[in-house]
Simulated assay, not measured.
Amino acid sequence: MDIKEIKKNAKERMKEFCILCPECNGRWCAGKVPGMGGASSGGSFQRSFEKLKEIKIAMRTLHKVSDPKLSCNIFGVDLSFPALVAPITGTKFNMGGYVSDEEYSNDVVLGSIEAGTIAMIGDTGDPNCFQFGINAIKKANGKGIAIIKPRENSEIIKRIKIAEEAGAIAVGVDVDGAGLVTMKLFNQPVGPKSLDDLKEIISSTKLPFIVKGILTVDEAKLCVEAGASAIVVSNHGGRCLNETFAPAEVLKDIAQAVGNDIIILADGAVREGVDILKYLALGANAVLIGRPIIWGSIGGRQEGVKITLDTFKAQLYQSMILSGADDVENFKNLSCILYTKKV
């Protein structure tokens, strides 16, 4: 099985929930929420893709870099390359239902480990989905991260304790899920969090805590003040609020403001290995990969997830050689590899 076969299978199996466009830019699937698209006109999804696309790499081949270092350590775990699987749920109403949420959770958690990295499991209106993810983490001896929707604090803390019992590496809340349509469909209340809310949640656990869905410097600083271990610069795939900034256009400012105080993960429109390189050069420590992992699971199950991640890893390796980048942990000093002038 190769990546072409995986994508071919996924296209056939997703029942036009996703047609695997030549460019996954959010245009065909605009407004398909639930589904695979972005909210309303799909502007936020499209902007995430376009702003990352605008960033170009300065190719350099007069150097000595022939075997760049891809490995890194996140939350005390050694990863083969700086990418984790984004938290995604709702296979039936978002992806067509070829795989169940239980099957998807097992595919991504176990497939990620085979590729030398880890997956985040998600939360949604159906409580079974979170439990399926927890069960997958248990099967993986704790090698996974649990991300919880911005529910009432008591409900979040309850789920944190479940993740702790499963041995999870870290936990977090995707605060950008405060306006998700799918939560409303299941009558599951979610909403914004105050600084005091964050402090209460974070103080409830000794695990590293992640705040996912940060797009501004001021909120990044609030996460540092609250005691978070990491933030994810993300607009939730453009699925919550239309006309937001793209992660790629705010990441550099956020990294300059808090990069020495907190782990920074970037999420949005990662479609090939060179996109990882771009986000790292802008100041991220690692990235999250979302939609391509869905294709991997549906098109090739656990093996498809591993192959998809291995493909990204190989592409990143080649991109580093051709830009003179020697180490994924040195990118904060290698922003010169980026070229942002529009062509």
Rank of each mutant, 00 (worst) to 15 (best):
N242A: 15
L222T: 11
M1Q: 11
T311L: 05
S48F: 00
K139R: 15
I145S: 04
S40N: 13
G172R: 01
E164I: 01
I254A: 03
P189C: 08
L62G: 05
W295V: 02
G133P: 02
N106S: 12
T244C: 14
K149M: 12
C240A: 12
A39N: 11
R239C: 03
F209I: 02
S44W: 05
A226H: 02
L185P: 00
G133D: 07
C240H: 09
D196N: 15
K278P: 06
G111Q: 00
G268A: 09
M320K: 01
T124M: 15
V175Y: 00
R27S: 12
R239V: 05
K193C: 07
P189M: 05
I57N: 08
G296N: 06
G96C: 08
V211L: 15
G283K: 02
L334N: 15
K313Q: 12
T117N: 04
A230R: 04
V171K: 00
Q188I: 13
A83D: 08
G172F: 06
G122F: 08
G38S: 08
A83Y: 02
D176M: 11
A257G: 08
V258D: 05
A136L: 09
D197P: 06
A284P: 01
A248G: 10
A230Q: 06
P68G: 08
I74S: 01
